[in-house]
């Protein structure tokens, strides 16, 4: 197996190669990279791959890590049911 075939985002099965190529081609932001590849958009909400996605992006674009967090955190930061979120009919 080639290194480029390493799966970075497990939930959405996005590889290192796909992320590197997309980052290079579009010179994009972390958010755009996420939207183009779906990396970090799976069930776990990027809890495993977020750091890797940032690192790949910095490497591909040659940018320095910025002071603000590259990939914005959105609530809920843990998987929760619709019922808990208040959309259910139990209330």
């Amino acid at each position: 197996m080639k290194d480029s075939a390493i799966v970075i985002c497990r939930c959405e099965e996005v590889t290192l190669e796909e992320l590197t190529n997309t980052a290079k081609e579009y010179k994009c932001s972390a958010r755009e990279l996420k939207l183009r590849t779906r990396a970090g958009m799976g069930y776990c909400g990027g809890r495993t791959c977020r750091f890797a996605i940032d690192a790949i992006l910095m490497e591909a674009t040659g940018n320095q890590t910025p002071d603000q967090i590259p990939l914005k955190y959105q609530p809920p930061v843990r998987p929760v049911s619709f019922q808990t979120l208040g959309g259910g009919c139990h209330e």
Binding site: M1, K2, I6, L16, C49, F51, A52
Partner: peptide, 12 residues
Amino acid sequence: AAETPAPVPGWT
């Protein structure tokens, strides 16, 4: 704290 990943082929 949380752990940073270190991807290795076959790590899934």
